[in-house]
């Protein structure tokens, strides 16, 4: 299991190859991190059932050191956005994301979380969770099979292993990244960051109406 830990350029003597690995501290640290990702127990829709299926005997994600599902975002490293993200739910999702401890990862599971999916045209469905929070891995499918989800996890492991302390926000700043402002439920969902855009759109619409009238 730990074969991938040894750096390819380093020759370990044959007699101790079974017990000794030689790696950089960063590689070792990331390897440990990637093998103990705790997901948040957080299901939104249909995909959540497949997520549970993946946790149970046939697929069994304990093999990846991930079986410790936490109900609290404070104790979780990975948010699996499993299902359709609706406008009513987005403020909660963003809040949960803000509450997660760094370094944190987001895996978007299924067509709906990736981009709206079959319900994209609907009036209360968000066109992908990445419109509000940053996503690390996208798993396609409707719903993705447990195998596909496991593949997504392996991709996440790769990503974690490839990170260096220099470029990851949390290690760089020694603190939390910026909090994402919570979207607000108005006449339609609105993001406080988009207020200028909303006002501009209202002005241009008014101009159009006046132009049509005059």
């Amino acid at each position: 299991m730990a074969d991938d830990l040894t750096h390819p350029s380093i020759k370990v003597p044959a007699e101790i190859q079974g017990t000794v690995r030689v790696a950089t501290w960063e590689r070792f640290y990331n390897w440990c991190r990637s093998r103990s990702v705790w997901p948040m127990m957080f299901g939104l829709a249909c995909c959540a059932i497949e997520m549970v299926a993946m946790a149970s005997s046939r697929f069994d994600f304990s093999r990846f050191g991930m079986e410790v599902m936490r109900a609290s975002p404070r104790q979780a490293d990975l948010m699996i956005v499993a299902g359709t993200v609706t406008k009513k739910m987005v403020p909660q999702i963003v809040r949960l994301y803000n509450q997660m401890a760094e370094p944190r990862y987001v895996l978007s599971m299924g067509a709906c979380a990736n981009g709206g999916g079959p319900f994209k045209e609907g009036y209360s469905v968000v066109s992908g969770v990445d419109k509000y929070i940053p996503v690390d891995v996208y798993v396609p499918g409707c719903p993705p099979t447990p195998q596909a989800l496991i593949f997504g996890f392996i991709q996440l492991h790769r990503k974690i292993e490839g990170q260096t302390w220099k470029d990851y926000t949390w290690y760089k700043n020694r603190g939390h990244g910026e909090e994402i402002p919570l979207p607000i439920l108005g006449p339609d969902l609105f993001d406080p960051r988009q207020i200028a855009l909303i006002e501009a759109a209202a002005i241009s619409e008014q101009a159009n109406v006046e132009q049509a009238a005059g």
């Binding site: 469905v125 968000v126 969902l189 609105f190 909303i198 006002e199």
Partner: peptide, 15 residues
């Protein structure tokens, strides 16, 4: 205009 499926009534004042 917002890059998402959003629409607001004309009298909406976000502030």
């Amino acid at each position: 205009p917002f890059g998402m499926n959003l629409q607001y009534p004309s009298d909406f004042d976000p502030h």
